[in-house]
Amino acid sequence: MPEETTATRPSDAALGSGLGRVLLLVYGIFALSASARALVQITTHFDEAPLAYLLSAMAGLVYIAATVGLARGGPRGRRIALISCTIELIGVLIIGTLSVLDKGDFPDATVWSNFGSGYGYVPLVLPFIGLWWIWRHKPE
């Protein structure tokens, strides 16, 4: 990275450090896969499970927001990341529990079904890592 860009970038921007870049890569993969999946589901067979597909789309948007927020850093990026990681955590816990208790409401899988078991439970772990990152880089 050239000097001039790092000089203006907030010190807590995930883009500015190696670990942060790995975190962004994983968040980026999830942002892409969740939104691509939702797009396919909504455009091809929306009527089958509208609730699950809208949730997929929302999850995709939340991952995109978290990725951008973590990448930017600074007060604004921090707030975006904090809100979206919290939504992710609540989402994966609530949808995970609901999908285990009652399969009827979620006939087709979302990223958060069964606590993200279809995605190697990464969706369950990711918000914790995101929140840890935000906590570790909190302003003085």
């Binding site: 990275m1 450090s17 190696g18 670990l19 870049r21 790995v22 890569l25 994983v26």
Partner: peptide, 17 residues
Amino acid sequence: LAKMEPTRWGSVILGVA
């Protein structure tokens, strides 16, 4: 991405991929 990150984290990026 790994070429942009010539540290251990570049290796992590390749590993995750």
